[in-house]
Amino acid sequence: MPIVVRLDVELAKRKMGVGEFADLVGLTPANVAVLKNGRAKAVRFSTLESICRVLGCQPGDILEYVED
């Protein structure tokens, strides 16, 4: 998919573990893994909102469009 989720970069910058991140956002670790692996098909705005709040970033910092 040409939309890439840059979650691992943002997590590494903040030295935040997947488990802690999942807890803070309110996602299951399994769904965080789906996001990180680029297998996610759709994300709720409310999920995106929680991610941005927890990481203190903008949606554009997490989502990126790349040509196929």
Binding site: V25, G26, L27, T28, N31, R44, S46, T47, S50
Partner: peptide
Amino acid sequence: MTVDGFRS
């Protein structure tokens, strides 16, 4: 409510 909890 968790973000995952929307499924009715």
